[in-house]
């Protein structure tokens, strides 16, 4: 009796969260799938059934291949910078030095800057070809300043996004490093293991799981980069810095093609789910009940 009542109470306590999330998943996602089969212009309803036409148009749109490649380049570029940089920084910050607390705060700060601020600060105050700090720096060395956002748009956005995520990777890897057994390290050192072999055989295996988590979580967020593109290049020049989210935004809310936008949305969901599958496995392994 008592346990039955407890179970009932437990179900009652969990259900609001579950119902809300279920509704949030099913209603918009179901509607997206439904819309993706409609010829539906937001400005000129009504909509009509069109089968897979929207998918065909989305996948053959001249923006699609560049957007897919840009999405991959952006994700992989930022991942490379942040994990390698994060490991190096975590190793450095794990050593003994004066003012650890303040340096930690300095390193973590970019993560708390909202994307629109970081993008506009980088765009105007650093990458602007006339007044940006990089332009001043180039001129000081007698070089021609580079117009980053029109000549290297994707690289510029990669730098902005990596700047925001490097602190995240560093902080997580540093947390993991601090739980490394120092006695094992000392034993290895006494046995004559060099710095590099200690790093490869002790530190790196210890970090593997945290690196996996960093990579997977960042991937989820990096697949969805939007604001940085929205306020800097607006996807241009041409499609040079359009990624999948920005392309869907363009199709849906700029060209008012809700059907094709929805088809793009379904494709984005599929891509994210492939990544999510691996993330869930990594997190699930750790969850012992």
């Amino acid at each position: 009796m008592a346990t039955q009542r407890a179970h009932k109470a437990a179900r009652l306590m969990i259900s609001p969260s579950v119902i809300l999330l279920l509704a949030w998943m099913i209603i918009p996602l179901g509607t997206t799938i439904y819309f993706s089969f409609l010829r539906y212009n937001i400005l000129t309803p009504p909509a009509s059934w069109t089968g897979f036409e929207n998918y065909y148009y989305f996948l053959t749109d001249p923006a699609f291949i560049p957007a897919l490649v840009n999405t991959l380049v952006l994700v992989l570029g930022v991942l490379a910078i942040t994990t390698i940089g994060g490991i190096l920084l975590a190793l450095l910050l794990n050593m003994e030095f004066w003012g650890q607390g303040i340096v930690r705060i300095l390193v973590i700060s970019p993560f708390f800057v909202m994307p629109t601020v970081s993008a506009l600060v980088w765009k105007n105050m650093f990458m602007n070809p006339v007044n940006g700090l990089f332009a001043h720096l180039f001129r000081a060395f007698g070089l021609q300043p580079v117009d980053f956002l029109s000549t290297l748009p994707l690289l510029s956005i990669t730098i902005m996004v990596a700047w925001a995520w490097l602190p995240f990777a560093t902080l997580i890897l540093l947390t993991a490093l601090q739980s490394l057994d120092s006695e094992q390290m000392e034993a290895a050192e006494m046995d004559g293991a060099g710095w590099l072999s200690r790093f490869i055989y002790l530190t790196l295996p210890h970090l593997t799981r945290s690196i996996t988590v960093v990579v997977l979580i960042q991937t989820i967020f990096l697949l969805a980069v939007f604001a940085e593109i929205y306020v800097t290049t607006a996807g241009g020049p041409g499609y040079a810095s359009t990624n999948i989210p920005f392309m869907i935004y363009n199709v849906s809310l700029k060209q008012f093609d809700a059907g094709m936008g929805a088809a793009g949305g379904v494709i984005a969901v599929i891509i994210a789910n492939i990544v999510a599958f691996f993330l869930m496995r990594a997190v699930g392994k750790n969850l012992e009940l």
């Binding site: 989820i220 989210p245 869907i248 379904v266």
Partner: peptide
Amino acid sequence: MLSTKMMPAVGVLVP
């Protein structure tokens, strides 16, 4: 619950 977080926002922007 965690898996719902994986749904990209842009996927449900239109509806």
